[in-house]
Simulated scan of single mutants.
Amino acid sequence: MDQKATHPLGGLTPSRTETAADAPNGRRTTVLLREFLETQTADRISLGALRDALGDRGFGVLLLIFALPNLVPLNIPLLSAVLGFPLVLLGAQLAYGQRRPWFPNWIKHRSFPRASFEAVVSRTLPALERAERLFTPRLTQLLSWTGERAVGTLVLFLALVLTLPIPFANWLPAFAIAIFGLAIVEKDGLAVLVGTAVAAASVIVAGAVVLGFIKAALLLFSSFIG
Rank of each mutant, 00 (worst) to 15 (best):
G55E: 14
V155S: 00
D2A: 06
G58L: 10
T17R: 13
L54D: 05
P24Q: 08
D52I: 04
F157R: 01
N25E: 06
T13A: 05
D52K: 10
L182F: 07
A216S: 13
L190G: 09
A67M: 03
G97N: 08
I45L: 15
P113A: 10
M1H: 14
S46G: 06
V120C: 13
A95V: 00
S202G: 14
N170I: 08
L154T: 01
P101M: 09
L172K: 07
R99T: 12
F221W: 09
F36W: 14
G48F: 04
S111V: 02
L211H: 10
T13L: 13
R130P: 03
V205N: 01
R123S: 08
E35Q: 14
T163I: 10
D2R: 11
E35G: 14
A53Q: 12
P14S: 02
F36V: 07
L78A: 10
S222M: 06
G207V: 05
P69H: 15
P113E: 12
L164N: 01
T13P: 01
A176Q: 03
I76S: 05
P113H: 09
R149D: 03
L54C: 05
L64F: 12
V210G: 03
N105E: 08
A216K: 10
L139N: 01
L220I: 09
L62N: 02
N25V: 10
L87P: 03
S202N: 08
T30Q: 04
F36N: 06
R51S: 12
V72A: 02
N75Q: 15
H7F: 11
A217E: 11
R133Y: 04
L219R: 15
A201H: 07
G181D: 06
Q3C: 10
L139C: 01
L47H: 09
R130N: 07
G91Y: 06
G26M: 08
V72T: 09
P126D: 02
V72S: 01
A178P: 06
V72D: 05
F224Y: 04
E38V: 12
I166N: 04
L190P: 02
L220V: 13
L87R: 03
G26H: 11
G84Q: 01
T39D: 09
T29I: 11
G48W: 11
